[in-house]
Design a protein around this nucleic acid. Structure first.
Lengths: 210, 210
DNA sequence: GAAGACATCGAACGTTCGTTATTTTTCTTA
DNA sequence: TAAGAAAAATAACGAACGTTCGATGTCTTC
């Protein structure tokens, strides 16, 4: 298993106190997220960020080097290691492939709920990340897909799943998990989130079993 | 069946000759699309648009009123009426619901191929549309979902499909059709487009049949 | 070919942008 | 509490932004 790299540590700073840096970086990322969601990365100015963080424009540049860095900080903040989340919830201990995938999807969906806007943001604004950070962010997702592919293959060997192409199916599953952040506008007012989770789970599983 | 409204006609111009307006609007939209894809709407300047269209900055404003109008022109250009596309391809004449949905998905997927970037663009930049235009754009998609819901219900009545919630399933199908533009980076180099179309079709159908 | 409508152009407007350099305040430590 | 380091605040830079305007060029029509 490849080590999950973190985007963190890419943003250089002029401030010496590391605790202070962490605190302000967190503040900047959290506040900037809301701005980026509303106005996009290019549409948000450093002065906007200065205003909402209450950090003076000049002082902001003590904690970052370029505007781009703010976007990196945002991605750091929400860059959960999905793989680790699955491990923590005991997904890999489940023997029955059906129950295992169900649990994996369930775990990720619940985790998505609190971060809908942020996930959408990462879909919309990832293209403005510096190449290096973008690669790291995509690697995380690729790894998640790989995990699903493994689970699907296990289910196929046991004759529980029947899928034309496990890699493609794994891609679809990860894609479908992001349906709520990306397409919620049409679904949210019709279903409760619990209902949505249920529907997504069974819809995904239905496409796997034979 | 509700009439499909068009975004067109919302952009006012100072030029009198309507043929000239149409021609230049087309040029502006086509060239701006590529810029918006690369740099986003906010990241693209009027001077950028002027440069690639070879229309002087001042003259550009003879054909539009605001920068926003360029985005509207882009949406006009690629705003296919999906519903009409299905009708044109004889989807509604197909009796067998399974074959019907298969044909509908197939038609849309093939039509997507040539417009991958543009579809992605509409996902990414629709939030910068003026409210009125945004509403029209979403109405088109809502209508497509409704059509799929109808087809699914027909299949359920005949005992061919078994779906927990037809409206949700219809949403998922439309979402899955856009998998290539939105997630192609992970799939495109592994599969040919034909293969991808095949996989998507059978994956969608598998989740419908009982 | 003169007149007048139409289209195009170049230059400029006032703002706002990302970023930096310098000064002022605050904190730490002896 | 003085001294020196660290952090914050201020003000400014040049460049680029969306938009406007008046002059210039190019057609049509008689």
């Amino acid at each position: 298993m490849a080590v999950t790299k973190n985007v963190k540590g890419t943003v250089e700073t002029r401030i010496k106190n590391p605790k202070l840096v962490r605190k302000k970086h967190l503040l900047i990322a959290a506040k900037a997220t809301k701005l980026f969601i509303k106005k996009g990365f290019s549409g948000t100015s450093m002065r906007d960020i200065s205003r909402v963080t209450k950090i003076t424009l000049g002082n902001l540049y003590s904690y970052i080097e370029k505007k781009e860095d703010v976007l990196c900080l945002v991605f750091d903040l929400y860059h959960k290691s999905w793989f680790k989340l699955l491990e923590k919830n005991g997904v890999y201990k489940i023997d029955d492939p059906r129950a295992q995938i169900h649990m994996a999807v369930h775990t990720l969906l619940l985790n998505c709920e609190a971060y809908q806007d942020e996930i959408k943001l990462m879909y919309l604004e990832s293209r403005f990340l510096p190449k290096k950070s973008l690669k790291i962010a995509m690697e995380n997702e690729r790894q998640l897909i790989l995990e699903f592919e493994k689970m699907i293959r296990r289910g196929m060997e046991r004759g529980i799943f029947r899928v034309e192409d496990p890699f493609y199916a794994a891609n679809m599953i990860v894609f479908q998990i992001s349906v709520n952040p990306l397409r919620g506008w049409n679904l949210r007012d019709k279903y409760s989130y619990d209902k949505l989770v249920n529907l997504t789970e069974s819809y995904i599983l239905k496409a796997l079993v034979q």
